[in-house]
Structure formats: C-alpha cells, structure tokens
C-alpha cells in the first residue's frame, strides 16, 4: 500500500512567555492508504498537536512531514490552504459549523474556495449529506440539529471535496455514547466503502476499538503502535 502520511523526527515546542513547553518530541509515524488509525493518549500528550500539523493547520518546530509523498513543510500558506481544502478533511470535537447557516451551505463552504459552479456545488453537497444520512435536514441550521446530526454535517463538509484523508480530533467528545457509536460506524463505513484513510484522536478506549490500528502517545512521543490483525466486523 502507498503511504499517505509519513512524519520524521517531528518536534513541536510552544513558547509560554519564557518557558518552552515541548508538545512533540521526535515523532516518527507512517500511515498507509486505507488505514483507520486511532491516536490515543491523555490530554497534553501531544496528540492534538500532531493532528493540527497533519491537517496543515500548524507548523512543526522541526522535522519533516510528507503528505502523499510530498514534503509540505516548505509550502506557502496559500498552498496549505489548498491542501486543507482539497486533500484533507478535518472533523473537530466542537463541530465548528457556521452558526445561522444551513447544513447545505455549511457543506458547500469548502467548495466556495475552489471555484465550483453554484449548481455543481449544490448537487455535490446534497450527495454527501445523503451519504451521512441527512438528506431530510438540508435547510436546518446547526441550532436546529442534534449534536450527532451536527457532527454528520461536519463530516459531510470534510468529505465534500473528496479528500484522501480524514482527520478527526475527538469527534465523539461532545456526544453521548450511543450517538458516538453512530458516528464511529459512519467513519468505519467511509473507511471501508470509500477507502478513505481515517486518523482520529480519542482518549476513550471503546472508541479506539473501532480503529484497526492504535497509536498511543505519552509526553510527546509514541509509546505503542499496534495493528489489529483481524478485520473489524462488518458495516
């Protein structure tokens, strides 16, 4: 399998006044196409920092990041914006939908930044919203939707430009366990059915169970990385 993500000796240090706080201390990780990876660790272990770097939202202090074989550390901010737009879909714990904006328009948002025509944009948005099971809720605004529905809208938004990689930072953190399970099986479906690489951050063991590979962080380094041998149960 071809690799989607490869990071080498990744360091990230935050500066809080005069104190330097290391968040990542030499991370090496390779993720292949079609993998479903759970990144685990307690809070402050550096897992979210890694996600932000993988999602081209933040730059590492040192180290290299190859996305689909391309070194992205040296790209311009505009090129990063393009990667966030086309090649990586990001799902957040807090959904991060535009308030007072319908589900449909929220999903259309990424397409506005790459010159889709209005009609195409509309059709594609309806298509992905159907994929996540929200074809009945196109004109609902976030405050008219439940948490699970909002997260589905966010996933649809992440999918709309057909990225090869979905990064999810605690996607079930704000949801009850039943809804969390629904969201996770949606990720599984996308991973299996659409062969999209999924990397998700969680600190809940049962959520991590949905993934086929688990990477555990502690104090900015990877302490364990084990792949499940058996395939997860069906869809």
């Amino acid at each position: 399998m071809s690799e989607v993500i490869r990071v080498e000796a990744l360091h990230k240090t935050y500066r809080m006044g005069d104190v330097e706080v290391p968040a990542l201390r030499g991370v090496n990780l390779t993720i292949d196409r079609g993998e479903f990876v759970a990144v685990m660790g307690s809070s402050g272990s550096g897992k979210s920092t890694l996600m932000n770097i993988l999602g081209c939202l933040d730059r590492p202090t040192s180290g290299k990041y190859f996305l689909e074989g391309e070194e992205v550390g040296s790209l311009t901010p505009d090129e990063w914006a393009h990667i966030r737009n086309k090649r990586v879909g990001f799902v957040f714990q807090g959904f991060n939908l535009l308030a007072r904006t319908t589900a449909l328009e929220n999903v259309e948002l990424p397409m506005m930044y790459n010159g889709f025509a209005g009609k195409q944009r509309h059709e594609r948005a309806v298509e992905v919203l159907s994929l996540v099971g929200l074809e009945e809720r196109l004109d609902h605004t976030p405050n008219q939707l439940s948490g699970g529905q909002q997260q589905r809208v966010a996933i649809a938004r992440a999918l709309v430009n057909r990225p090869s990689l979905i990064l999810a930072d605690e996607p079930t953190g704000n949801l009850d366990s039943a809804t969390g399970a629904e969201i996770m099986s949606l990720f599984q479906r996308l991973n299996a059915g659409q062969s999209i690489t999924v990397v998700l951050v969680t600190h809940e063991r049962d959520i991590a169970e949905y993934a086929r590979r688990r990477v555990v962080f502690r104090d900015g380094v990877i302490v364990s990385d084990d792949k499940k041998v058996q395939e997860p149960e069906g869809l």
Partner: peptide, 16 residues
C-alpha cells in the same frame, strides 16, 4: 474570529 478560523480550516486563503 471563530468563523474566520472555520473558513481557513476548510481551505480559505488569506486573500479570500
């Protein structure tokens, strides 16, 4: 600010 962050996260460039 948050809206701006969301737009940037889904691919808006500075000039957008």
């Amino acid at each position: 600010t948050r809206e701006i962050g969301i737009r940037m996260a889904v691919g808006a460039r500075s000039r957008d």
